[in-house]
Amino acid sequence: MAFSSFADFLAMGGHAPYVWSAWGVTLFFLLASVGHARLERRQLIRGLKRRQRRDQAYRASPQNSTGGQNAPAGGGHHDA
């Protein structure tokens, strides 16, 4: 342990603003890139599912069911 107390650790021997701002910006960028990737994935999946529902609703509706072999069991989806 290079510091004698927690206050000492926070003060960083007088260099606190530099050390903590550099670490803060770095951690911000790392966390932001993870957050962005997660948000991106969630939005993509939501979009894919919405399209799936729309396609199934389209196939399930009687005027469009030319084949009609794979009509979904649990119909009645609300269109988003």
């Binding site: 290079a2 510091f3 960083m12 021997g13 260099h15 530099y18």
Partner: peptide
């Protein structure tokens, strides 16, 4: 790096 590594003798904690 922040708490346990020794401080540099020239630059201190920066």
């Amino acid at each position: 790096g922040l708490a346990f590594a020794p401080a540099d003798y020239q630059q201190g904690n920066s």
